[in-house]
């Protein structure tokens, strides 16, 4: 084989370089040099065998330069780059499964409303619920922004129970937060309300027993959406024109008005 010993010499010289691209590059450079030298000796009239021996002699000891080359070729960023590709692939594989499942279950914006995942039904679109009947239903669609959230009242309803003469003021609010990984799942607890008759409904945090207050539960219903099912505790069936919901957590008061005059009456 032509250049057999030269090839061996080069291989030995680069054997201690651990980073493969560098190893290959240095190998190629050394080999090109020795081939030039070899051809120069051939031109001077030496035999192939002599030319090879003289080229090797001129290069010196491969063992001697191997550790020197290895000490120089330690590219930290090169290592990091070559590893990072595999790390990224593995991470993508791990991430894709839950993301896929989440999107399949929820969609990107979330299902319209998941009232109760266990029962899979929505009380707002039924006229009868737990023995009570709905006397008012409307879709206010009012929206406001604060603290990076978008609040949207999507539905509101009033139920009445004939036997107990009890009432319930229900509404549904979507909270959209583009930074859902840092979301505050209790954002609904900051809301307080007032109605046109001067009743005050305290927020969950400031409520005292026996008073009127805003209360509710929430469910994550999409990547960027959490849906709150809320009610005004202490509501006694007054005939109301409007209810104002307030959010003033960071000092700026925003108001969402549920206008009850335009609703679809069931009675």
């Amino acid at each position: 084989m032509k250049f057999g010993r030269i090839e061996d010499w080069c291989r030995q010289a680069v054997s201690q370089i651990k980073y493969p691209p560098d190893r290959q590059m240095v190998h190629q450079e050394l080999k090109a040099h020795m081939e030039d030298r070899y051809e120069a000796y051939l031109e001077r009239g030496f035999s192939e065998k002599e030319a090879e021996a003289k080229a090797l002699e001129a290069m010196g000891s491969a063992q001697e330069i191997a550790p020197q080359l290895a000490a120089i070729h330690r590219p930290f960023w090169g290592y990091l780059l070559s590893i990072s590709r595999y790390v990224l692939i593995v991470m993508a594989c791990i991430l894709i499964v839950p993301v896929f499942q989440y999107v399949r279950n929820m969609g990107i914006r979330g299902k319209d409303y998941l009232y109760d995942p266990a029962r899979q039904r929505d009380p707002y679109i039924q006229e009868e619920w737990n023995g009570g009947h709905r006397i008012l239903y409307l879709e206010p669609g009012v929206e406001a922004r604060s603290d990076g959230y978008i609040f949207r009242i999507t539905k509101a309803a009033i139920w009445e129970w004939d036997e107990s003469e009890g009432h319930m003021f229900h509404f549904q609010m979507d909270v959209i937060d583009n930074r859902s990984w840092v979301e505050d799942a209790d954002i609904g607890r900051w809301f307080w309300a007032e109605d046109d008759r001067g009743n005050y409904y305290a927020s969950f945090y400031e409520s005292i027993p026996g008073s009127r207050y805003v209360s509710g539960n929430s469910y994550r219903t999409g990547f960027f959406t959490r849906t709150y099912e809320m009610w005004l505790s202490g509501y006694e069936g007054e005939d109301l024109q409007w209810v104002d919901l307030h959010y003033d957590r960071s000092g700026r008061d925003i108001t969402l008005r549920i206008d009850l005059t335009g609703g679809e009456a069931n009675e």
Partner: peptide, 8 residues
């Protein structure tokens, strides 16, 4: 100069 030493 041993030519191999040029490269390091």
């Amino acid at each position: 100069l041993k030519e191999g030493t040029l490269y390091p």
